[in-house]
């Protein structure tokens, strides 16, 4: 076994520490440059500012299937490219998690349009290889772990399912994030939001336990949600014809709230960084989301 001294790199992530300011930064510049080279993106390629522009309306049947297209797509390393992006997304690049989630839905049968979207993401990475996560020393330890969540109603064009997105920050930097297609169809925005609350609460319970093991005692975790109706649904025992079918999730979330371990709080849409995990957002909104959770340009 070899001792490598002060940690500089772990599983492909570069670690930069500033002991005076009390910050730790994680970047993946080397890895990203390597994958860009592998997929033929070089200095001549024009970078783009958002990972997926709204004009990509991805669906399973994007163009008619011809023998020619099939032959063309058989040569394209679609799964390789998506896999490479996914690793970056899991480690430090939560800014592309929604987009990776979009393109990975078509892994079994990619079309030309999907490949164009993957190339667009690679071009976005090309312009942002120096982006990373920053964690800051925080003296107010009692409010260290904070969660944000959001959902996008019927974002998926094939089966009309909704998207869940959440991010948890510790020491002001993101530690856990997810952007995923919900497993069942939601009948209303409130319901989509409600399913996202359930997912976020499950993650919050685990993280709360983990940081307690690590010696950070926090009385409760605040999870911020921008949907007032979902919050009311959790807090009040209202019975309504449009919500009466949401049964099991109801009881789970309410029970957790009653125990006081995790609390659901209201946040304005403008201050919610998870917008970028559930939908394609504009460049300005996108960078605002970065600032909210300490994604920085190195």
């Amino acid at each position: 076994m070899k001792d490598l001294g002060e940690a500089k790199k772990i599983i492909g992530m570069e670690i930069q520490r500033d002991k005076i300011k009390g910050t730790v930064c994680l970047t993946q510049t080397q890895y990203l440059k390597k994958i860009l080279e592998r997929f033929g993106i070089d200095g001549k390629t024009k970078p783009v500012s958002t990972p997926l522009a709204p004009h990509f309306k991805l669906s399973a049947s994007m163009s008619p299937r011809t023998a020619e297209e099939r032959k063309h797509m058989a040569q394209i390393p679609y799964a390789n490219a998506v896999g490479a992006l996914m690793y970056a997304m899991v480690c430090t690049r939560l800014d592309i998690s929604h987009d990776v989630s979009m393109v990975s839905r078509y892994m079994h049968d990619p079309r030309k349009g999907h490949w164009q979207a993957v190339k667009w993401i690679l071009r976005y990475i090309h312009g942002t290889t120096d982006i990373g996560l920053k964690f800051e020393r925080d003296d107010r330890l009692e409010q260290n772990l904070v969660g944000y969540m959001d959902s996008d109603y019927t974002g998926d064009l094939d089966k009309r399912r909704s998207t869940t997105g959440y991010v948890f920050t510790l020491a002001k930097g993101p530690v856990s994030w997810r952007s995923t297609l919900q497993s069942i169809v939601a009948l209303s925005t409130t319901e989509a939001e409600y399913m996202a609350v359930t997912k976020a609460f499950k993650e919050a319970i685990w993280l709360h336990g983990l940081i307690e093991d690590l010696g950070i005692i926090q009385e409760h975790v605040d999870v911020y949600c921008d949907s007032q109706s979902a919050i009311y649904l959790v807090k009040n025992q209202v019975h309504h014809s449009r919500t009466k079918h949401i049964d099991v999730r109801f009881h789970f979330v309410r029970e957790i709230m009653d125990e006081g371990e995790i609390l659901l709080q209201k946040i304005g849409t403008a201050d919610n960084p998870t917008d970028m995990l559930t939908k394609c957002v504009s460049r300005i909104k996108f960078q605002h989301c970065w600032d909210l959770i300490n994604i920085f340009r190195y």
């Binding site: 685990w206 336990g209 983990l210 093991d213 690590l214 010696g215």
Partner: peptide, 14 residues
């Protein structure tokens, strides 16, 4: 050291 019940890849000691 104790292995964390929440994440098996974490060991800690006070």
């Amino acid at each position: 050291y104790t292995r964390s019940q929440f994440d098996n890849c974490v060991y800690f000691r006070k």
